[in-house]
């Protein structure tokens, strides 16, 4: 059934006779026009990457960061409308902060995804608002080591179990993606935006599912993320872009449990490898043609 001309697509929160909310589907269209964003959940951390399309030569280079920190151990990247993304991030920060004031500890990634999923979904319920024109990818690292309660002053009892289960393992790297409908899933590798199809097929080639044995490492993840963004940019070659990469590891890892920008040296290396692999592909294609 077509949406246009029926009138069912003119207002949010209205179902069409076949049970669709067209305004949400149109919001998805806004996302599909945006630069590609990806997230990779690696063995020892999460990498977020973004193909940031450069709309003008007058923009300041390396400013205008789009991947945001929500809490110390968590980051968000999004495709779609920049102002909607900023709103989303601002709400996520409020959620993380209010969680801290209630529980005196950082919010787990799954809980943040849940709360933000509910928030985004609420914008599909009323005709007085429009849905978010973004798809957001949340990546973070829930601490595995026991964290002290925020504001603790002593070290607590020196003996006794303290109600903990011995040997119970918790925490680790987590990755979620939230769509304009409010739907969210956990992912090993997630992609959104214009080049998501190409990015997805690249992500599927990586070893990310723990069931298939050892996953790729964080550092490999960074290089793959750079490469995948370059692959995803192929369809959009006429536009310039800047590569943005952030990562988060465990407290023992390179970022010390924090969500940070990938250090310049590593990013440049990853970018160089990405460019090289692109050239390689082209050569292959040419060779193939030659053979033909």
């Amino acid at each position: 059934m077509t949406s246009i001309g029926t009138g069912y697509d003119l207002s949010n929160s209205v179902f069409s006779p076949d049970g669709r909310n067209f305004q949400v589907e149109y919001a998805v269209k806004a996302v599909e026009n945006g630069g590609t964003a990806i997230g990779i959940r690696c063995k020892d951390g999460v990498v977020l990457g973004l193909e940031k399309l450069v709309s003008s030569k007058l923009l300041k280079k390396d400013a205008n960061k789009r991947i945001s920190t929500v809490d110390r151990n968590m980051g968000v990247v999004y495709s779609g409308l920049q102002p909607d993304g900023k709103h989303f991030v601002s709400r996520a920060r409020d959620e993380a902060s209010s969680w801290r004031s209630t529980y005196k500890a950082p919010i787990p990634v799954s809980s943040l995804a849940n709360r933000m999923g509910s928030y985004v979904q609420a914008y599909t319920l009323y005709n007085s608002v429009r849905p978010f024109g973004i798809t957001a990818i949340i990546g973070g690292y829930d601490a595995e080591t026991e964290l002290s309660v925020d504001g603790a002053v002593g070290s607590g009892p020196k003996s006794g179990s303290g109600g903990k289960t011995k040997g119970a393992k918790e925490g680790g790297p987590y990755l979620y993606m939230i769509e304009p409908s409010g739907t969210y899933w956990g992912y090993y590798g997630a992609a959104s935006g214009k080049g998501r199809q190409a990015a997805k097929s690249e992500l599927e080639k990586l070893k990310l599912d723990p069931k298939d044995g050892e996953c790729i490492s964080l550092e490999e993840g960074v290089k793959e993320a750079a490469r995948i963004i370059y692959v995803a940019h192929e369809d959009n070659k006429d536009k310039d872009f800047e590569l943005e990469l952030t990562w988060v590891s465990s407290v023992a890892g390179p970022t010390k449990g924090r969500h940070e920008e990938v250090p310049k040296a590593l990013r440049e290396e990853a970018e160089k490898l990405a460019k090289k692999s692109m050239e390689g592909d082209e050569d292959d294609e040419e060779e193939e043609k030659m053979e033909e």
């Binding site: 949010n12 067209f22 149109y26 919001a27 998805v28 269209k29 005709n127 429009r130």
Partner: peptide, 11 residues
């Protein structure tokens, strides 16, 4: 109004 997306995702 500014709460309606066009089919192309524009406002």
């Amino acid at each position: 109004d500014s709460v309606t997306f066009s089919p192309q995702g524009r406002i």
